[in-house]
Nucleic acid binder design. Structure first.
Lengths: 335, 335
DNA sequence: CTGAAAGCGCTAACAT
DNA sequence: ATGTTAGCGCTTTCAG
């Protein structure tokens, strides 16, 4: 591998000049610059990023640590991040913490050790990861999930409102006993979506029946099992609000497997859309999130934070939108 | 940020000893080692990976460059890679080339510049990326798609066989005019799947009707449009083999939108499964791929290549499995 | 405008 | 078993 000195030698200039030409940092005699460029070309020289990074003590990499690559919500979001990153000349490296705080911690360590220019993180529970990044003065933006007690740039959606709207929609549809399958307690999206559900019940003057609440793991399997457990309860619900897309899929699968008719015997609304939701029969009613926008916004915040590390942390809350489809509307003829 | 010298000073040893303790490369007096560990702890010392990387001229990162993060096939595959990587103490960074050779080239450049320990790549067309990596002697494994004329570790599935089986299945179901929607010409999966389709027709003694073949882009939208174009053809098909999952979704959506009854008016088989395929109505018949295994195998090959750079490149071909579901079986009553 | 030289933080000979 | 020392390849003062 050719080094900057090989280039310098060939162009008959100093390494410093080569560096200046390559980085455009200072003005160089056009003739010399031309010689340098020619030498670079001839040698197929590619700067060694490791050396450059060490010297500058930063990289041009953004780490995006998401909690589940298998969830289209997160991959859609990554698209938004990528588009902004690319226009700012950063490369995005994606890390999958798989909802596992230990893996998250590992990737935070990697981000720190590699001195990534910034990190976008959807925390899998503990605040520890964010705090470590903040302590190291690494620009960081939290996405999807809040980290209580930590002052950090954040991009969220209005979870309570979305959930309340979903629940109210089920109530308006005449469903009587509405259950909720939410995520792990302590994860802000899980907690807030549960709260929105409760708010809607309260506002409608309904009692909360805590036997109709399940905490699961935001995964398909977990949603299936939670649904099964609801069906086996003493007095099963006639509708369910499910706090994420994957669990909603699981719940639907469970209902199909048990032969429970949707939406007539059981209404269901999920939080966050599914790809090809239109092909699922009956089509799933969802609380839609602006996934791509979430990613874009987070990336913009990160870019701003990098440009001005001293600025006040901002929290952006984007709106959700209820998409009424087939799983929440009883047929006119049904009881 | 504390450096190795701060630790050395605090533990009253040399930097070399600290390094040895941290890397376990040579034996050190347990007492000293203990002092070092204590100092590390007290200072919250974290080795600077950039310096280490520069010194060792390699990182402990694996780059996985996939052609579409939005495709569950690729994200499932990443899972397999991650599990192996983790057990080998590598971190996985994911890069999304988005089927764009230019982005792929960028990420290859990043991988090279960052001197990643190895790269797993699903090439988006040109052989250029692989070749660059190979030239730089970066361990690389190609996944999903072959790169003709290049000797490189590869993990593939038996595309011809899977496609032929799918097509034969449609023929056996009594479909007469079977179309094919495949990917971009020049991408090995697209070409081979088309070839498998043709083989099956030939073996069944059917003529090839080239007006029933469409090349699209492996995306949902593309599948939709290709299907629309087939429907608008002079003599539309009564079945279609679609060469990937996303395009199959698009094709199905088109059929739903146009009110074409599946499977009675039109049979359809896709290549590669969909998540929650069971919820899609009618359930999509697919050629299933062992996605997780593909990832695992690629990762293992990469680990072996890193361990022994001189070994002969291997090509592993995994088997597909036809999953017959609802979209390829006409009801008994239908004509 | 250009070159010489120092040094980012770490590891691996080499010496003791 | 431990310490001393010399760089890895680059950028960036500082002189000229």
């Amino acid at each position: 591998m050719a080094t900057i000195y090989d280039v310098a030698q060939r162009a008959e200039v100093s390494a410093a000049t080569v560096s200046r030409v390559l980085n455009g940092h200072a003005s160089v005699d056009p003739q010399l610059a031309e010689r340098v460029r020619a030498a670079v070309e001839e040698l197929g020289y590619r700067p060694n990023a490791l050396a450059r990074n060490l010297r500058r003590s930063r990289t041009s990499l953004w780490g995006v640590i998401i909690s589940d690559v298998g969830n289209p919500f997160f991959t859609a979001l990554v698209r938004g991040v990528e588009d902004v990153a690319q226009s700012s000349r950063y490369s995005v490296v994606l890390c999958n913490s798989d909802e596992d705080p230990a893996k998250e911690a590992d990737y935070v360590t990697v981000a720190l050790a590699e001195q990534m220019a910034g990190v976008i993180l959807s925390p899998s529970g503990a605040a520890e990861g964010v705090r470590k990044l903040l302590d190291a003065e690494t620009p960081v933006v939290v996405i999807d999930r809040e980290v209580p007690g930590v002052s950090v740039d954040s991009v969220l959606v209005d979870n309570e409102h979305g959930s309340a709207e979903a629940t109210a929609h089920l109530l308006a549809g005449g469903y009587q006993a509405i259950a909720c399958i939410t995520g792990p307690a302590g994860i802000s999206t899980a907690d807030r979506r549960l709260r929105g559900y409760r708010q809607a019940l309260t506002e409608a003057g309904r009692a909360h029946d805590e036997t109709l609440v399940r905490h699961s793991d935001f995964r398909e399997r977990g949603g299936y099992e939670a649904m099964a457990s609801l069906l086996e309860a003493g007095s099963p619900p006639d509708a369910v609000f499910v706090a994420n897309n994957l669990m909603a899929v699981g719940a639907l699968e469970c209902l199909v497997a048990r032969g429970v008719a949707v939406p007539n015997q059981m209404g269901i609304v999920g939080f966050d859309d599914l790809p090809w939701a239109d092909l699922v029969r009956p089509a799933l009613t969802t609380v839609g999130q602006p996934t791509y926008e979430l990613g874009r916004t987070a990336a913009q915040l990160l870019a701003e934070r990098i440009a001005d590390p001293g600025k006040e942390p901002a929290t952006v809350v984007l709106k959700t939108e209820l998409h009424v489809r087939g799983t929440s509307r009883r047929d006119a003829l049904a009881s």
